[in-house]
Design a protein around this nucleic acid. Structure first.
Length: 231
DNA sequence: AAACCGGGGTA
DNA sequence: TACCCAGGTTT
């Protein structure tokens, strides 16, 4: 597959995903305009390995209880843990939230613009660093999680390495996909598409607007796979 | 590269 | 029951 063909294929894919998003976007409290960096980062932390629908009801309560970094610094670690129990990963998240809060209070709430320094902030891995650059710094960065990875791999072909974060093919593909003035909306669009159509278990391939050009769909139809249940 | 964290939802 | 979820850290 040459570069020009792939570029055209990405462009088509992008247009169709955006068209779908216009009519099917999900509404979440962390997608509102004018959120503070605190509110944006808390959302990403709560969303780690946790369904967006689960976080949706919890998010507003959490912000009411802990409205800023200083509130987390002041709070007892056990208090934060207990508060996080309903959504899981509560010990890890409490400990890391605490460290991040201390860092940010010490730095007057300022996050480093330099990517290397940004990734050295406590609790700041590749994904959240991208989220900060996308949502706070308004850069074109992918929220490449398991869901975006699943959609890209089904449509364009599978990754080379097992870990998303170190696979140069997936990283480049995701980067190319969101390299567009509507980068933020493209990210939301593909995540919503992953959650509602290109689902992990029962993908809605039969009604999918991308099925005629989708690698996964054509492959599965071709071999008449009995293990996949379409909707 | 693989293990671990964790409760809730779903098939 | 087993699998999955807007990942990051440790080994």
């Amino acid at each position: 597959m040459n570069g020009y063909y792939l570029e055209e294929r990405i462009r088509l894919f992008r247009e169709k995903i955006l068209a779908w998003f216009a009519n099917h976007k999900r509404v979440f409290p962390w997608r509102q305009d004018n959120l503070s960096p605190y509110e944006l980062i808390i959302a990403e932390i709560l969303l780690q390995r946790t369904k967006a629908e689960t976080v949706s009801t919890f998010y507003t309560q959490f912000l009411a209880e802990f409205p800023n970094w200083q509130a987390l610094v002041n709070a007892d670690s056990i208090t934060i843990e207990n508060y996080l129990i309903p959504i899981g990963l509560y010990r890890q998240r409490a400990q890391r939230l605490k460290k991040l809060a201390i860092y940010l209070v010490d730095n007057n709430g300022v996050l480093p613009l330099d990517r290397t320094e940004l990734e050295n902030v406590p609790f700041m891995g590749q994904y959240i660093a991208n989220a900060v650059e996308l949502l706070v710094f308004n850069k074109r960065k992918p929220l490449l999680d398991v869901n975006m990875a699943r959609v890209l791999e089904r449509y364009f072909g599978p990754r080379k390495l097992s870990d998303i974060r170190y696979d140069p093919y997936l990283q480049q593909l995701a980067k190319d996909f969101v390299d567009h003035p509507d980068s933020k909306f493209l990210n939301w669009a593909i995540l919503d598409f992953a959650a509602l159509v290109c689902k992990a278990r029962k993908p809605s391939c039969l009604s999918c607007l991308l099925n005629s050009t989708c690698k996964f769909f054509s492959d599965v139809v071709q071999i008449h796979d009995a293990g996949i249940h379409f909707e």
